[in-house]
Design a protein around this nucleic acid. Sequence first.
DNA 1: TCCGAACAGTTCAAGGTTGAACTACTAATA
DNA 2: TATTAGTAGTTCAACCTTGAACTGTTCGGA
Lengths: 142, 142
Amino acid sequence: MGKPSPGELWTLNFELTTGVMAEVEPEVREQGLEMKEFFLLGKLDDHPYPADLARALITPKPTITFMVKRLESVGFVQRQTEADDLRRFRLTLTPSGRKAMEAARAILDDAFGRRLARLSASERAELARLLGLLAEKQAPRR
Amino acid sequence: MGKPSPGELWTLNFELTTGVMAEVEPEVREQGLEMKEFFLLGKLDDHPYPADLARALITPKPTITFMVKRLESVGFVQRQTEADDLRRFRLTLTPSGRKAMEAARAILDDAFGRRLARLSASERAELARLLGLLAEKQAPRR
DNA sequence: TCCGAACAGTTCAAGGTTGAACTACTAATA
DNA sequence: TATTAGTAGTTCAACCTTGAACTGTTCGGA
């Protein structure tokens, strides 16, 4: 691949991320989590409300409702009504929820870490920098 | 983000790809294609059999069956039985299927191209090189 | 040539996802 | 203080996805 078009580069990158995800999925499931649930738990500290999670995860609200319902039923998440806004529920990780989430994170660290080990330390730093620039919502000024 | 862990870098990258995908999805749908169908059509030239597509797209076989059925019904894909192996169907893009696929590809090129425009030409080349190394199925020798 | 293993693709039922419409509540405006 | 618009979260029915089991075909070895 001499000079990939933007779309080809996107596709390559997409297959990289989904490939790692597929690799990791069975082990994460052993922790009692679907991948999507793992992503949800990972956002919970910064986005403690369902509507907030829906935006952060680019996922419809009903899907969040159903995922939270299950995560609550298995004791990974707790919900408490918010006193100053009775429409909202604040979600918090239970200790077992945090434990499952951190175990899943370790599995992902390990799998992607093996890929990153193909690069030198300076290449890894450069990759992180470039992806950081691309990921920002609006173009960063440089 | 000073020194992201592998998992954090994976997550950042995953959100980059899914963010671009969400951005592009409405326009691609106007071409008569779901994103997954676009990915399928994009693989068709290199992977002309359903079982082959299932492996390439990391997707269960029944899902491929249903997607192909729809794509055939709207005239984007044609299937012909393979004379030397009667179990298999060879799939080919129709002209309208190729047209839709190429239109979707142009939309993706455009959207990801806008992100890449944040980088210099040499940075883009370096990114492509690094992602190429990471994406290979087994570690490339260097 | 027969037989069993393996593969391509489909069917079906169970389960997951989601758009539309809804209830309950808050906030802004007059 | 009404009125109206907007937001949080849920429900429901329609649709999509998929594991398990199946049919039909190929292939290798006895």
